[in-house]
Simulated assay, not measured.
Amino acid sequence: MRRRQFRLLLEPAPEEVVRLTQLHRYASDVAGQERAPIGGVLAEYIAGLFPQKDPRQVLDGLLGKGDAGWSLGTVPGQGRSLIIQTTEAGVAVSAIARILEQIAPGALLRPMVYEPLSLHNPIDHRGSLH
């Protein structure tokens, strides 16, 4: 997988926002070498999808190793819109698609805006994405 720089604007349902936020926190804690707790909503959701597997195994398989390569942000004044933006490490588009497919599948049914980013021209989370 090739790590890319991009920003993705999406409209997940409220429970999907919670799961994505808890996943991002888990990914950040794991990258920091901490034994990360899994948020309650996310743990329950994963247990429902994969009842015979340890939720940590599922999440670790979904996230891979090292820095997650993405961050979450919101768009002021745009309701429940959420921005997934790559960090300097970058992330494969397919990795984010797989995360959305498992953690926030409803977001895939709503309009999204994909914007490639250049490393030479960093853009703030609150840039214009309409």
Rank of each mutant, 00 (worst) to 15 (best):
S128K: 14
L49C: 09
V41Y: 10
I103A: 03
E15V: 11
R25Q: 15
R80Y: 12
V113E: 14
Y26K: 05
R56I: 00
I96M: 04
H120M: 11
Y45L: 00
G90I: 06
S81Y: 01
S71W: 03
F50P: 03
Y45G: 03
Q22W: 02
A104M: 08
R25F: 12
E16N: 08
G90D: 07
T21W: 03
I38P: 05
L42A: 07
G64R: 08
R56F: 06
F6I: 14
H120F: 15
D67R: 09
D29W: 06
G32A: 13
Q22L: 01
L42C: 08
Q78P: 00
H125P: 13
L119F: 13
L119K: 10
E115T: 02
A31T: 02
V30W: 04
R56D: 11
Y114I: 01
L119Q: 12
P37L: 13
N121V: 10
L49K: 12
T74Q: 05
R3Q: 14
E16S: 07
M112H: 15
V17G: 10
R25W: 12
G64Q: 15
L82C: 07
L82E: 08
A97D: 13
S94L: 14
A89F: 10
D29H: 09
G61D: 11
H24I: 09
S118V: 00
L109D: 06
L100S: 00
S28E: 10
Q52R: 12
D60Y: 01
H120V: 15
